[in-house]
């Protein structure tokens, strides 16, 4: 067993591209679900329309990179309004149903044959990240400590990513300490009570949906740029559920929980996956386990770990146990 490789890849995963993308998506989910109680099961679509908005603008229509970013942002906001206007006046479950369906519709449009001249079908779009990497201040080489290092392109993506995460966390911190955040948390507890106190609940829910979508869409941009390509199947429903897992793992309605949750989630996945594959190649596991099925086994083990976490620490890592105790009353 090559423990060195396992260690290096695991540490790299804790700050790697996936962690950054999922952390941003989860910060968005945390705003919507954790603070405002909105069940947005379509977070993947918010990242998807942003990533495609940018990629298509640049790769298909050969327009400037920053225009692509603007179009991606606009697409996210339009999607939030499209989903929110008909559903936010209704009971919470309607938003869940509509968003999960909308996310699939968005993904299927991106991969459809009919629009493949625009979105590129199931292959997606490439050749749009040139302008982004042209801004790279890092000269070619590797950056990091010893074996835990990244090349200049990855370093650039991660730098931008962690700066965006810091900004997003700062934003959430300021907002949730303010009276604005108080209204949001109150809506999560009981909408009618908030209405009876003279607050326009619909407007606050819409603001939360848009804000969560916009923060998530930053993850969409980074996902596309970091891989220098977009594919429709990156934005499938399980993406959204991983984001929810991360929020619950960290503890809902805490500023840093999505970030720490994302790091732990990916460290666990990478560590368990690499350890299993090393163990299989070293012949340490029964023949039941092969290189082909350890991918599935990895998810089973991580799922088991998450279940244990929820049994023994239902409030998540940063959560307040007293809040969970209130639910039981």
């Amino acid at each position: 067993m090559d423990w060195n490789t396992i260690f290096v890849t695991t540490v790299k995963a804790s700050i790697g591209l996936e962690t950054v993308v999922y952390a941003l998506a989860a910060i968005g989910v945390n705003i919507q679900f954790g603070y405002a109680g909105l069940l947005n099961f379509g977070q993947a679509a918010f990242l998807g329309v942003a990533a495609y908005g940018m990629a298509v603008t640049v790769a298909t229509f050969h327009l400037p990179f920053w225009l692509g970013i603007l179009i991606g942002l606009a697409a996210t906001i339009v999607l939030a309004f499209l989903l929110g206007i008909p559903t936010l006046r209704l009971r919470a479950d309607y938003l869940a149903i509509v968003t999960i369906a909308a996310a699939e519709i968005v993904r299927l449009i991106f991969r459809s044959v009919k629009f493949s001249s625009v979105f590129g079908g199931s292959d997606g779009r490439q050749n749009f990240s040139g302008d982004f990497f042209a801004m790279n201040p890092y000269s070619p080489g590797t950056y990091g400590i010893g074996p835990i290092s990244f090349n200049e392109r990855v370093t650039w993506v991660l730098t931008v990513g962690w700066v965006l995460i810091a900004i997003a966390c700062g934003l959430v911190y300021l907002l949730m300490k303010s009276p604005w955040g108080r209204v949001l948390k109150a809506i999560r507890e009981d909408e009618d009570a908030v209405r009876s106190l003279g607050k326009n609940v619909f407007s606050y829910k819409m603001q939360a949906l848009v804000l969560g979508g916009v923060v998530g869409c930053l993850g969409g941009f980074l996902f596309a740029l970091g891989q220098a390509s977009v594919q429709p199947d990156l934005f499938s429903t399980e993406f959204t559920f991983y984001a929810y897992t991360i929020v619950i793992l960290g503890g809902a309605a805490r500023v840093f929980s999505p970030v720490v949750g994302a790091a732990i989630f990916w460290v666990l996945l990478v560590f368990v996956g690499n350890t299993l594959s090393e163990a299989v190649s070293a012949g340490l596991l029964p023949s039941l386990f092969t290189v082909n099925n350890i991918g599935a086994v990895r998810f089973m083990l991580v799922g088991l770990g998450l279940m244990l976490l929820l049994i023994f620490r239902p409030q998540g890592i940063f959560g307040d146990k007293r809040e969970i105790a209130l639910d039981a009353r």
Partner: peptide, 19 residues
């Protein structure tokens, strides 16, 4: 006010008031 009291459970008493 409501027949079934709508205290906002996970907000403190003071936050309820400020709202």
């Amino acid at each position: 006010t409501f027949q079934l009291t709508k205290a906002l459970s996970k907000l403190t008493v003071m936050e309820n008031m400020r709202l």
